[in-house]
């Protein structure tokens, strides 16, 4: 019990914040706890959730991926173009996801083999992808997809939207991979001490590439959800989403230095951020304040989660 509390103290704090937020908002607005609104929140969170799960892996490894927002746009555009060109929907989705994974693979390759800082690699990748999208499409959206395709974004399984099911599934798989498998263990270990992993005979480069590929794939799935939901591949889709994903990951207790993190925390953090956004809308507070609030929460969260470490090192 004591160990459980020690290991999960921060996650429990997040749960507390989540509950308090829900209670306050449900008192402030009668619409907040309605099933429609709850479903709306979960549906909105789905994209960020998928993106943040991938980001959690990358940050656990002590790296960063700024290109995920652009991958959303790029993979969505690929899927859209293929669909419009008459390729069967599911094949188009598959190809789009493969392209997204290939972009992640390239990021990983450049980081591990060419030894370029991941911040630079993914920043450059983001710019390149955005540029290519605009060149290809002349900045015009592509729209009008088949029912099968749009089902993946706005369809329902029973009372629940498909993206919600998809995102929770991915979060569950992500949690299992990070906490229960050798891959997850090496991901965390490379984050905390890459040299040690290398000396122990672990092929660090290979695992880095795998992690970036996973992150790319997650971004591709987010791209699928965005495109299918809007029934339109927008050139600027996913812009700025990388920041939300990073914010949710860090707020969820993943250490920016790597070596420490958990998917459950990321999920809860994602919910907190999206509930706040939703709450501000319900309370008719200007959306500009949302950004201010998100930034402020992030700073406070990192302050709390890093305070233990500071106490120990006494600097």
């Amino acid at each position: 019990m004591k160990r459980f509390l020690r290991e999960h103290s921060y996650t429990l704090l997040l749960v507390g914040i989540l509950i308090v937020t829900i209670v306050i908002l449900s008192i402030a607005s009668p619409y907040f706890l309605s099933w429609k609104n709850c479903r709306n929140i979960l549906n909105q969170s789905a994209i960020y959730l998928v993106l943040s799960v991938g980001m959690t892996f990358v940050i656990c490894m002590g790296e960063i991926d700024l290109s995920v927002g652009a991958i959303i746009g790029f993979s969505g555009m690929i899927m859209g173009m293929l669909c419009v060109a008459g390729v069967p929907s599911l094949l188009a989705v598959l190809l789009g996801l493969m392209v997204a994974s290939a972009i992640g693979f390239t990021n990983g390759f450049l980081v591990s083999y060419c030894k370029i800082n991941s911040f630079i690699v993914t920043l450059a990748m983001m710019t390149i992808l955005r540029g290519v999208i605009l060149v290809w499409t002349n900045a015009k959206p592509i729209y009008g997809f088949s029912d099968i395709f749009t089902f993946l974004g706005s369809g329902k399984i029973g009372p629940v939207n498909v993206p919600i099911v998809l995102s929770l599934l991915i979060a569950a798989v992500g949690a299992v991979i990070l906490h229960k498998t050798v891959l997850g263990n090496y991901c965390l270990f490379c984050g905390t001490n890459e040299l040690a992993a290398n000396r122990a005979g672990i092929n660090v480069r290979k695992y880095k590439i795998m992690i970036f590929t996973i992150c790319g794939l997650c971004a591709g799935i987010a791209g699928l959800i965005v495109t299918a939901r809007l029934n339109s591949a927008e050139p600027l889709a996913g812009q700025g989403y990388e920041m939300d994903a990073i914010a949710a990951t860090i707020l969820g207790g993943t250490s920016m230095q790597g070596g420490k993190g958990n998917v459950l925390g990321t999920v809860i953090a994602c919910l907190i951020l999206n509930i706040l956004k939703n709450g501000l809308v319900l309370l008719s507070i200007s959306s500009h304040y949302q950004e201010v609030l998100t930034g402020a929460i992030l700073i406070v969260a990192v302050f709390i989660s890093e305070s233990n470490k500071r106490k120990r090192s006494e600097v």
Binding site: L188, T192, A197, G259
Partner: peptide, 18 residues
Amino acid sequence: LALGNTMDVTSNLFLGNE
């Protein structure tokens, strides 16, 4: 020491040999 400070003792003992 080539240890991962954020990882538990077991993970460190079995590193590369899980």
